[in-house]
Design a protein around this nucleic acid. Sequence first.
DNA 1: GCAAGCTATGATAGCGCTAACACAAAAAGG
DNA 2: CCTTTTTGTGTTAGCGCTATCATAGCTTGC
Lengths: 354, 354
Amino acid sequence: MGQEIKPAVRTARRSAKGPTVADVARLAGVSAMTVSRVINNEGNVLPETRERVEAAIAATGYVPNPAARSLASGRQRRIALLHANPSAAYLSEFLVGSLAEASACDAQLLVEHCSESEPTAALVARLRSHNIDAALLPPPLADDGALLAALKAEGILMAQVATGLPASFAHAVSIDDEGAAMDITRRFIAAGHRRIGFIAGNTNQTASALRRAGYERALTEAGIAIDGDLIAQGDFTYRSGLDAAAKLLALPQRPTAVFASNDDMAAATVTAAHRAGLEVPRELSICGFDDTAIATTVWPELTTVRQPIADMARRATRLLVEAIDAGAAATAPRHELLKFTYIERGSTAPPAGV
Amino acid sequence: MGQEIKPAVRTARRSAKGPTVADVARLAGVSAMTVSRVINNEGNVLPETRERVEAAIAATGYVPNPAARSLASGRQRRIALLHANPSAAYLSEFLVGSLAEASACDAQLLVEHCSESEPTAALVARLRSHNIDAALLPPPLADDGALLAALKAEGILMAQVATGLPASFAHAVSIDDEGAAMDITRRFIAAGHRRIGFIAGNTNQTASALRRAGYERALTEAGIAIDGDLIAQGDFTYRSGLDAAAKLLALPQRPTAVFASNDDMAAATVTAAHRAGLEVPRELSICGFDDTAIATTVWPELTTVRQPIADMARRATRLLVEAIDAGAAATAPRHELLKFTYIERGSTAPPAGV
DNA sequence: GCAAGCTATGATAGCGCTAACACAAAAAGG
DNA sequence: CCTTTTTGTGTTAGCGCTATCATAGCTTGC
C-alpha cells in the first residue's frame, strides 16, 4: 500500500576514481558540455568561461577518461608503425619515442613488419583491415615511392621519418642531413685533413644522397677537388663498410680521414684500419653518422653526428595524431627539421704530422 | 491538437560500424547480458546457450568494442615496461613482442626507463601515480631484488623475463639457460675441443651463473677438469669481452674454443682473435649467446643460441594481463620456460688438426 | 510439501563523455 | 526596426558494454 519506497540511490559503481566532467562543470558553474568544449579546444567559448573551466580542471585534477571519450565520439586513432629491417638500435629508439607520444595522445600504435617480398597491395590491404588511420614510416620505407602512393590512394595519412625527399602529400620529420654532412667534413678540413674519404650509404635511401652532397659541398667550398677514388659505395651494413674501407685504405695515396654515412660502416672502417695496421685516430680519423649504440661499442669510440631518433619519432607521431584529428579539415602536410648534434669522441684527430 | 508527432529516431551516430552485442543477442535469441557473459567466459551459461551465442558471434563477425568495455567495467590494464639499458637490439625485439600482445589483449603499455641512479622508491612512486597494474621486467631489472620487493609491497604484479632466479611472488618467463650452455659446450666437446674457454657474464644477472653452471656441468660430464684459467669474467659489454678474450688468448696453452656468455662478448672475441693473428674458426672456435643483430654483423657470423626474445616478451605480457584480470582471485605466479635454438654459423669448427 | 538455496537468464541503469539539436542573447543586415 | 545570422551555452540522448538486481525454474532437506 501507499507509495513504494524508492530504494536509495545505489552506491556508485566506481570506487573513488578521479573527478569527471560533471565535477568540473559544477565547480566552474557551467554545463558538462562546455567543459567538453574547453577540453577539446573547440571554438565558441568565451575566453573568461574557458579560464574558469581551466581553473576548475586544475583545481580538481581532472583527467579525461579516454575510454569514455572514444566511445562517445566514435573516434579512434590507430597508427601503424611500419618497419622493414632498419637496425635494431634504430627501431628500438624509434619505438620508445613513438610509443611515448602515442600513449600520451591516447592513440593506438600497431607495429607491423614489412618483408620486402610482400607485395605492397597485400600490405595495404592488411592495414585497411586493421582500420589504420595513419602510418609511421621510418627509413627505408620512408623512401618507398610505391608504398607512399598506395597509402595515399587508400586515404591513409602518413609521416616519413628521416627521408631526404618528403612527399608533397605526406608529413615528414628529418634532420638536415646535408648540413650535418657538411659540418663533419668542414671539421675534418679545419683539423687539417685534405684527403678525406667518403663511404656512401644505400642508394635506396634519399638521405644517402644528401649526406654525399654535404660532403662534396664542404670540399668544394674549401677549394678541395672532389676525387672519385675517395668515394666508396656502401649500403649501410657493417659488411659493406668493411669492403668500402678496404678499398679506400688500399689507395696508393690513402685518405687521412674517412667519413662513413652511418655508424655501422664507420665501425667497420675502424676494424679495416686495424687490419691494415693503422692506428685510429693518429693515422686515420673516422667519423660516423647516427650515434647508434655501436658508436660507443667499438674502440676507439666513434665521433659521429647524433640524430635525435626518439624525438623524431615523437614528432612524427604527434603530427599524425593532429592530422587524424583534423580529419576532413585536412591541413597541409608539415615538413619539420630537427637539430642534429656533432659528437666528438676518440676516433678523430688532426692528421699525423700536422 | 492531436498528438505531437514524435520525430523519427535520429539516425544513429555511428556510421556503418561493426555489429554490437545487441545484434549478436538478437540473432542468438538471448539478451545482451548473456552475450556479455559468453564473451567474458563467465560461468552460469548453459552449454547449448553458449554455443548458440558463439555461432551468432561468428556469423556476425562481432568484435567487442574495447572502449565500451573498459568504460562499462571500469577496468583497465596498464602495464609498465621497465628498462635499464639492456642492449638496444634486445629492447627492440622485446618491445615488438610485448607491444603486439598488449594491443591484442587491449592492454596499455607504458615504457619507462629506469636510470640506475634513481632511487627505487621514486620509481615506484612514479608507477603508482601512473596507476600501473603490472610491470614487465627484462634483464637486468628482473634480477633487482630491491625493485621486486618494492613492487610487491605496492601490490603491483610483475613478470620477470630471462631471469635465472624467479621470485616466488612474480611471474617469470625464461629459457633454460643452463641447458643451453650445456648444449653449446657439449657440441664443442663432441667436435673434439678439449680446452674450452668461457667468458662469464655480469654477475648482477642470475642467468650468468646458470650459463656458467651449464658450461661446467658439460665439462664434468665429459670428464674434462674445470680449469679456472679458462674462465674469464666479463660484464656482457663488447669492451669487457675484448679484455676477457685477450686474457684467454694470452694463456700459455690457449683454448681452441671460446664460449662467450653473450653475442657482444663473442664478437669482441672475434676481434681479439684477429688481433692475435688467429683465424676464426680454424684456429679458434667462438660461440655466443642470444642471437642478437651483432651475431650476423661480424665476420665470420657467430654460432650462437637463439633466445626467442619477442616470444618471451609476448608470453610475459600475456601472463600479466591474465593476472590483472584474475584480480583478487590471485592465481599462483607462473614460471614458464621457452625453447632455445642452437644456431650454427661460421664461427665454430673442429679444432685444427682433428 | 514448502522454505531455503541454487542456477540460468533478463531488465534496468548507468560508466564518462560528446553529437546533435535547442535556444536565448548579441550582432549584422536591409 | 525587424528580420536573419552568429555566438555561447545548455539539454537530451545515446556510444557499446557490463554491474546489479530481479525473476523464473529447479533442486534440496527435513
